[in-house]
């Protein structure tokens, strides 16, 4: 079984996001970038499937700028076998990425695509579902457990109020949720090996996909700041404020 794992380069989860002064987007210049954390989980799961003898090859894919090579190197250091960069400086949006992935699926012939459930920069939570629809494959989203069988895969999903297990016929799409696994660290020997693994660069054009944005961003603004609290003199004053100002009692 070949597995395709798409990975996105995003602003590091622990960086405080700043909005650009002109409101056109968030500041990404000179900001620490890392692999989307849900994609890290997807890579880890693919590597575990390979280590368990269920998968034969893992191909990591990133759609993005030249620097996304670093993200791919991280995936290779974690255990992916080779990588493909679909290089574009356009702002990537779920539908365009899903079309690129569809083209790559047709070219590479994987039987499983494992994605993160969403990217933490735009929080869209759409790419996996769109790809499933474009390919006409089954999908197991928000996966917290995967058990690979013969010709099928059982995916335990995190849903409102509990867990649901779906049995998918392969080929299929899985999107990883937080509890699926804990991604490993890239070890030094594996980082060294990763530098020798193949990393191919293609363009969206060569795959016949137009990635031009179909959405227009009007304005990006900071969330409203929380107002400072006030101290009240006594319980009576508190009750009074809850009644007259907050109107909650």
């Amino acid at each position: 079984m070949k597995i395709l794992v798409p990975v996105k380069r995003v602003v590091d989860y622990n960086v405080k996001i700043r909005v650009k002064a002109d409101g056109s987007g968030v500041e990404t210049a000179n900001v620490k970038m890392s692999m989307n954390p849900f994609d890290e989980i997807a890579v880890e799961e693919a590597v575990r499937l390979k280590e368990a003898g269920k998968a034969t090859e893992i191909i990591a894919v990133s759609v993005g700028p030249a620097q996304a090579q670093e993200t791919l190197r991280t995936a290779l250091a974690m255990g992916a076998d080779r990588a493909i960069l679909v290089q574009t400086d356009a702002e990537t949006q779920p539908l365009a990425v899903a079309k690129v992935l569809k083209a790559l699926v047709e070219k590479e012939g994987p039987t499983l695509v494992v994605l993160g459930k969403q990217a933490i920069d735009d929080d869209c939570n759409q790419t996996g579902q769109m790809l499933a629809a474009l390919l006409g494959w089954g999908q197991g989203t928000f996966a917290s457990k995967i058990v690979a069988g013969e010709g099928s895969i059982a995916v335990t999903r995190e849903i409102d109020g509990g867990l649901e297990t779906v049995d998918l016929k392969l080929p299929a799409i899985v999107t990883a949720d937080l509890r699926l696994n804990e991604p490993r660290y890239a070890s030094l020997p594996n980082i060294m090996k990763a530098k020798k693994k193949p990393l191919e660069t293609v363009t969206p054009d060569s795959l016949g996909v137009d990635v031009a944005s179909r959405l227009t961003t009007l304005k990006v603004v900071e969330p409203a700041k929380r107002k400072a609290g006030v101290k009240v003199a006594d319980v009576a004053a508190l009750v009074d404020k809850l009644k007259s100002e907050a109107r909650v009692i």
Binding site: M35, Y185, L188, M192
Partner: peptide, 20 residues
């Protein structure tokens, strides 16, 4: 770290891929 590993100063290691 790679050069140190080749020189035998470093035996193994991990590099953080994210702030987390």
């Amino acid at each position: 770290l790679e050069a140190a590993m080749e020189a035998g100063e470093v035996l193994d290691g991990v590099v953080a891929a994210s702030k987390a």
